[in-house]
Amino acid sequence: MKADFTVDASGLTCPMPIVKTKKAINELEGGQVLEVLATDKGSIADIQAWAESTGHQYLGTKEDGDVLKHYIRKAFEGEEKEEKKHDKTIDNDGLKNKLDDNITIIDVREPAEYAFGHIPGAISIPMGELEDRMDEIGQDQEVYVVCRTGNRSDMAAQKLSEKGYNVINVVPGMSQWDGPVEKSE
C-alpha cells in the first residue's frame, strides 16, 4: 500500500494514536496519504471518527499481525466546493450501464484509495502522475475519468481534453458508487 508518510503509534494507548495522527497530518500536503501504525484496537473506531470530525478522508485499515495500518488522505482546503469545468460528464448509473462495453476507465485517485476499492478494469493513474503517463492511454477511444467526488477527475478531464482526448468525467464518482468493486494490495 503506497503512502506518502508513515507515523508509528504502535504500543501506545488512547488518545495517542489520534494525537500522533493529528500532528503528522499537519506535515502533509492536501491529497497526500498518511499511514498510521497502531496496536490500540480502539483506534479502528477512533481514526474513523476523527476523520469524520476533521474532514479528512479515511480510506481503510489493513491488519498485519497485531499491527493495524490505517490510511487517511488529507483533504485539500475547500475540497468539496470546487466548481466543475469540464462539460462532458456522465453520472454513476450511466457509467454502470456501459461497463460491459469494454470502455476505458482511468481512476485518478491516490494508489491507496484505489487499492481499497475501484471499478473492475479501471486503470490507476494518480492525478500527480497524469502528465507523465498520458501516453499509456489510447487516443482512439472514449476515456472515462473517475475520482472520489468528481473534482480531481474534472481537472484530469480538462488536462486530457487539451491534449486531444475524448474525455468524459464521471460524477460524482466513487463516493457514491454502488456498482461492482474490486480491491487490490
Binding site: P15, V19, W50, T54
Partner: peptide, 11 residues
C-alpha cells in the same frame, strides 16, 4: 484523554 482527543480533532 478527552481534552487531547478533542484538541487533536481541531476542537
Amino acid at each position: 484523554n478527552i481534552a487531547t482527543a478533542a484538541a487533536a480533532a481541531d476542537g
